[in-house]
């Protein structure tokens, strides 16, 4: 009996060694760009699984195989530090085209301005923008504040004590709030939250007076909110009766963009393949249908345009950050 076990054990060991040896021999380099992709592509997501960025990327994954040689897209969550960890991961990855990732603007622009920055905006190779999610000024459904005029009056009456929720400080929302204060000529008390979900609850529960929120996050609890004004050029088709700041005479435009990028230094031919593939995905009617279902305002831009948008955000952020002395010394 004992001998048998020993024999089997040896056999297992031998078999194992054999498979390992054969496995190692199989890896050989091939012409990279022409056949790209020849293996799975890693998708770095800088926010938690199940978050808005992840959900959007999952929709992309649904159509990925069709346009990329039937190779899988493998998700790699590198979360933390408001996305900075994941963004840094993309920049530092090997630029062989097998690591791409989701990026958010203006997050990357603001983070690159910090003196604790771990990347620069020009270290990304931009593939495509897929979402432009406008900011809104929102109050509770039964709030005494009825419209933008009422909001401004209330803010002036409370003399700076009106509380407005934002997600984090030194973030897209924070800058939007500063911008709004300046344009509307008011002063309010910002109350930062760690995420859209808890911010939504604080407004619903009446713990804060108003908030700056994204359309995507506000859509989840539409019945509980009153949407005061939209910070975009035009009204949005999902909330047609919500006026923009612009049409009321305040030139306040603010949104969050989601897109995809690879590390800089990627083979231009591979980058082109990625850009083409994303272009095709973004124009697939089924994809557009899915995007509507998950409530994300679809807005495709190609890589070059996306890069330009990012750089313009970088300029705006720089002005605001300098003005309010937000860069940490």
């Amino acid at each position: 009996m004992k001998k048998n076990i020993k024999l089997i054990a040896m056999l297992v060991l031998a078999l194992f060694a054999a498979t390992m040896a054969s496995g190692c021999a199989g890896t050989k380099k091939e012409d990279a760009s022409a056949k790209y992709p020849t293996k799975q592509v890693n998708m770095v997501i800088a926010f938690t699984a199940g978050g808005s960025s992840d959900v959007q990327a999952r929709i992309v994954e649904k159509y990925w195989k069709k346009h990329f040689n039937d190779q899988p897209l493998v998700f790699d969550y590198k979360t933390g530090a408001g996305g900075q960890v994941g963004f840094t991961e993309i920049v530092k990855a090997k630029p062989d085209g097998y690591t791409v990732g989701g990026i958010n603007v203006p997050h990357i622009a603001i983070q690159s301005l910090s003196n604790q920055a771990t990347f620069k905006v020009d270290e990304f190779a931009y593939i495509a923008q897929v979402v432009a999610d406008p900011n809104l000024l929102v109050v509770k459904a039964d709030s005494p504040i009825k419209d933008l005029k009422g909001f401004i009056e209330e803010a002036k009456k409370k003399n700076g004590k009106l509380t407005v929720g934002i997600v984090g400080t030194f973030t897209a929302h924070h800058l939007a709030l500063l911008q709004m204060e300046e344009i509307l000529g008011i002063k309010v008390t910002p109350v930062p939250f760690t995420g859209a979900a808890d911010q939504n609850v604080a407004v619903m529960g009446g713990h804060i007076d108003a908030m700056i929120g994204n359309l995507n996050d506000v859509m989840r609890d539409l019945a509980k909110f009153k949407l005061i004004s939209l910070a975009s050029e035009q009204r949005h088709q999902w909330v047609k009766d919500v006026p923009t700041f612009k049409e009321q005479g305040y030139n306040f435009i603010s949104d969050i963009r989601r897109g995809f990028a690879a590390p800089k230094g990627i083979d231009p031919a591979v980058l082109n393949k990625l850009r083409e593939g994303f272009n095709k995905i973004a124009n697939d009617p089924a994809y557009l249908e899915d995007m509507k279902k998950i409530g994300q305002p679809e807005a495709y831009l190609n890589g070059d345009e996306f890069e330009k948008v990012t750089n313009s955000y970088l300029q705006t952020s720089k002005t605001l950050v300098d003005k309010y002395g937000l860069v940490k010394k």
Binding site: T169, F170, H174, L177, P190, P192, G325, K329
Partner: peptide, 8 residues
């Protein structure tokens, strides 16, 4: 560390 940050 900074003792105060605008709005906090």
């Amino acid at each position: 560390m900074p003792a105060e940050i605008a709005g906090l």
